[in-house]
Design a protein around this nucleic acid. Structure first.
Lengths: 232, 232
DNA sequence: CGACTGTCGACTGTTGACAGTTTGCGGAGC
DNA sequence: GCTCCGCAAACTGTCAACAGTCGACAGTCG
C-alpha cells in the first residue's frame, strides 16, 4: 500500500517521486522543457536514473516527449481535457458501479466519514481542499475492489491535478460536488449500480465543465496573454 | 497518418518494438527473466536503450519488475485475469457507448466490412485469427473517437494477447463471438448506447470465461495445487 | 534589404566501465 | 546427514564520457 515509503528504493524510483512532486506542485511550469543535465546536477544524481524517471512520468502522462528536444510538462487545451474526462468517466463510472455491488459495511462507513470531514472542512471556511475530494474517490476505489481500474484512475487523477492546481475552484462548484458525493454514497448504500454510475457521470461532467470554464478564463485569450499566473 | 514508420526512431524506440514482439510472440517465455547484458549483446546495442525499452514495456504492463532481480514476462492467474477484464470492460463498454452516439456512416460501413471478413475467414476453415477480432475492436475505437480511451484499450488488449497467444480457442466460442459482434454492430447502427454497452459487456464476459477455462486447463493443475482462485 | 546557407553551441542519444546487492554453491560444524 | 556460514559469480544500479542531431545566429549572396 501507500504506507511508509521504503527508502531502500533505487535512485531512479526516488527520482520518480521527487520529479512527480515538482511537476504536480507546479515548480516546473507547464510547458517548460526539462533540461536533463541541469536537473541531474541539481538533484546530485547522474543522467541515467533521471532519464528513467522522466520516461516513467511520460508513461504516466504527466510529461510529453519530443525526439531530440527532450520532455516538457504536458499542457492541455479544452479538447484534450474533454478527452481526458471521457477516459476518467469510463473508469470511475465503472468503479462506482462495482463499488455499489461489492461495498462492505466498513467501506460505507469510511465513505460517510470522509464526506463528513469534507463538509466539516468546508463549513470551517476552508476551500474544500481537493485532498479530501481525492480521499473520497480513493475510498470509492477501495470499495470497488478492482485493482487494475484503481491504478488507472490514479493515473488519470494525477493528470487532472496537474491542470486543477493551476486555478481556483468557486464556492458553488464546491457545494454541488459535495451534494454529488452524498448522492453517490446513497446509491452505493442502496447497492444501486446504475444510479451510482449515473451520479458519477453527472458529477464528472460538472467538474469537467468547471475546469473548462476556468481554463477558458485563464488560458483562453492566448494571443500574447503572457500573464503566467502560477501563483494560485 | 500512421504511414511509413519513421525508421529514424531512436535506438530505444526501435528496441521497444522489437522487445514487444519478442514478448507477444512468446519468444521470451512467460515468467522468464530478462537478462539485460545478454539481450543487449544479442541485439547489438548497449544496456542503456535496452533498459529504457524494458521500463517502457513495464509501464505497458507486459513486463513486471522486481528490484535487483530485473524484469520478467508478466504471468497472470485467474484472479488477475478477472481484474484485467474488469478494466477492459470499463473501457470498451464506454467505447461502445460512445461509438453508438458518434459513429459516422463510414464507421458503420467499416464495421460491417470487418465483420464480413471475419465470417469469410471463419467459413473458409481458418480459426478466426484474432487479428480480425482486433481489427473489429479497433474500428469500434475509431468510431468512438475518444483518443485517450483508445490508447488505454490498446494497452489492455496487448496484455490480453499476451495471455491468449498461449492457447487455442474453440469453435463454439468463435461462433458466439461473431454473433456478439453482429449484435454490437446492430446496436451501434441504431445509435442505442445502452444496448451497445450491454452487448459489449456480455461479449467480454464470454471471452473472459473462455480464457479462464483455457487457463485452468493448461495452467491450473500444477504440482502444488495452489488454486487460490477467489475471483469473484 | 531580404533570403539563404554555413557554422557554432547546447542538448539528447549512446556507450563502456565501476560499484553494490543478491543468489547459489561449497565447506565446516553440530 | 543436515544446517549454517562464508565466499564467489552474476546481475542490476549508477556514473562519467563520447557521439550525433537540432536550433540559432551570423555572414553572404541576390
Amino acid at each position: 500500500m501507500t504506507g511508509p515509503a521504503p527508502q531502500r528504493q533505487s535512485l531512479a524510483g526516488q527520482t520518480v517521486d521527487v520529479l512527480r512532486e515538482l511537476v504536480l506542485t507546479g515548480e516546473i511550469s507547464t510547458g517548460q522543457r526539462v533540461n536533463e543535465v541541469e536537473l541531474a546536477h541539481r538533484m546530485h544524481i547522474s543522467r541515467g536514473p533521471l532519464r528513467e524517471a522522466i520516461r516513467h512520468l511520460i508513461s504516466e502522462g504527466l510529461l510529453v516527449y519530443v525526439p531530440h528536444r527532450g520532455a516538457h510538462v504536458r499542457q492541455a487545451d479544452a479538447a484534450e481535457l474533454y478527452a481526458l474526462f471521457e477516459l476518467r468517466a469510463a473508469l470511475e463510472c465503472a468503479a462506482a458501479r462495482l463499488a455499489a455491488l461489492r461495498r462492505s459495511d466498513h467501506d460505507l462507513a469510511t465513505l460517510h466519514q470522509v464526506s463528513a470531514e469534507s463538509r466539516q472542512s468546508y463549513e470551517a471556511g476552508r476551500r474544500f481542499p481537493y485532498r479530501l475530494d481525492l480521499a473520497f474517490h480513493q475510498c470509492l476505489l477501495e470499495a470497488a475492489a478492482s485493482p487494475r481500474i484503481a491504478d488507472q484512475v490514479r493515473l488519470v487523477q494525477q493528470q487532472v491535478i496537474l491542470l486543477r492546481s493551476r486555478h481556483e475552484v468557486d464556492q458553488a462548484h464546491t457545494h454541488a460536488s459535495m451534494a454529488d458525493h452524498d448522492q453517490l454514497i446513497a446509491a452505493i448504500a442502496d447497492r444501486d449500480a446504475d444510479r451510482a454510475s449515473a451520479v458519477m457521470a453527472t458529477h464528472l461532467d460538472r467538474v469537467r465543465d468547471q475546469m473548462v470554464a476556468a481554463l477558458g478564463e485563464s488560458d483562453g485569450p492566448m494571443d500574447s496573454g503572457d500573464r503566467d499566473g502560477d501563483g494560485g
